Computed example of a mutant assay.
Amino acid sequence: MELRKTSLHDVLEIIPKRHQDTRGHFTELFRQDWFAANIADICFVQENQSLSRGAGVVRGLHFQAPPAAQGKLVRCIAGSIFDVAVDIRAGSRSFGQWTSVVLSAKQGNQLWIPEGFLHGFCTLVPDCIVAYKVTAYYDPDCDRGVLWNDPDLGIDWPVSPEAAELSAKDASQLRLADLPSYFSHAEV
């Protein structure tokens, strides 16, 4: 597996190696020993999957507050998405900054987003299936979010606000400036 840094420390792109021949390919998607040695020694407890029918579907920006804070390992198993992480760790030099990676079934890449980051994505083509492993169980009492197009974040989404397809929940989230602090980060 290849590991690529993003513009946000701790958010990492993972490119699994594909073994190809005339029949197709084989990919080892996850190895606990490799993940522990190269990223974090954590345990995934739940795996989620979403289907988004149209291009321009936006899901996010979401996170789980403590005590159910989640790290996420995200991949797109059909189609392609513009995947986003935003640092919301108080005290971090990159607080409020975002990074993005295009995840696609064709490329097979993944994005590791640790606790303390918002996560969201926009579908780039119809019929996208996104799967992600998480480090804590979903808890509806800890479910939080930030407005996907908060102007203070300045995320360069590949869809206009008028064309984006959103849930009512995602369309009415708080702005980052109005969000209480849930995570802190001591710089080393």
Score class of each variant (00 low, 15 high):
Glu2Thr: 07
Leu3Glu: 02
Arg4Pro: 00
Lys5His: 07
Lys5Glu: 15
Thr6Ala: 04
Asp10Asn: 11
Val11Asn: 01
Val11Glu: 03
Glu13Met: 15
Ile14Thr: 05
Lys17Gln: 12
Arg18Phe: 13
Arg18Asn: 09
Gln20Tyr: 15
Gly24Pro: 09
His25Thr: 08
Thr27Asn: 02
Phe30His: 14
Phe30Trp: 06
Arg31Thr: 08
Gln32Gly: 02
Gln32Met: 02
Asp33Ser: 14
Phe35Val: 08
Asn38His: 15
Ile39Phe: 11
Ile39Asp: 07
Ala40Pro: 01
Cys43Ile: 14
Asn48Arg: 09
Asn48Trp: 12
Ser50Cys: 10
Gly56His: 05
Val58Lys: 02
Gly60Gln: 08
Leu61Asn: 02
Pro67Gln: 10
Pro67Ser: 03
Ala68Arg: 05
Lys72Gly: 00
Lys72Asp: 03
Lys72Pro: 00
Val74Cys: 00
Arg75Ser: 05
Cys76Ser: 02
Cys76Trp: 07
Ile77Gln: 00
Ala78Ser: 07
Gly79Thr: 03
Gly79Cys: 05
Ile81Cys: 01
Asp83Pro: 00
Asp83Gln: 01
Ala85Leu: 03
Ala85Asn: 01
Val86Pro: 01
Phe95Tyr: 15
Gly96Leu: 08
Gly96Tyr: 09
Gln97His: 12
Ser100Gln: 13
Val101Leu: 01
Val102Asn: 06
Ala105Leu: 05
Ala105Pro: 00
Gln107Gly: 00
Asn109Asp: 06
Gln110Glu: 05
Ile113Arg: 01
Glu115Phe: 06
Glu115Met: 08
Gly116Ala: 12
Phe121Gly: 03
Phe121Ile: 11
Val125His: 01
Val125Tyr: 08
Pro126Glu: 10
Pro126Lys: 10
Pro126Tyr: 14
Asp127Arg: 12
Cys128Asn: 05
Val134Phe: 12
Val134Pro: 04
Thr135Leu: 09
Tyr138Asp: 06
Asp139Gly: 06
Asp141Ser: 12
Asp141Tyr: 11
Cys142Asn: 15
Asp143Cys: 09
Gly145Ser: 10
Val146Leu: 11
Pro151Phe: 15
Asp152Pro: 01
Leu153Ser: 10
Ile155Arg: 03
Asp156Glu: 15
Asp156Ala: 13
Pro158Lys: 08
Pro161His: 13
Pro161Met: 13
Glu162Ser: 14
Ala163Pro: 01
Ala164Phe: 15
Ser167Arg: 09
Ala171Asn: 08
Gln173Thr: 04
Gln173Pro: 00
Gln173Asn: 13
Arg175Cys: 10
Leu176Ile: 11
Asp178His: 13
Asp178Met: 10
Pro180His: 03
Pro180Arg: 03
Pro180Cys: 07
Ser181Thr: 15
Ser181Leu: 14
Tyr182Gly: 00
Phe183Leu: 01
Ala186Lys: 14
Val188Phe: 09
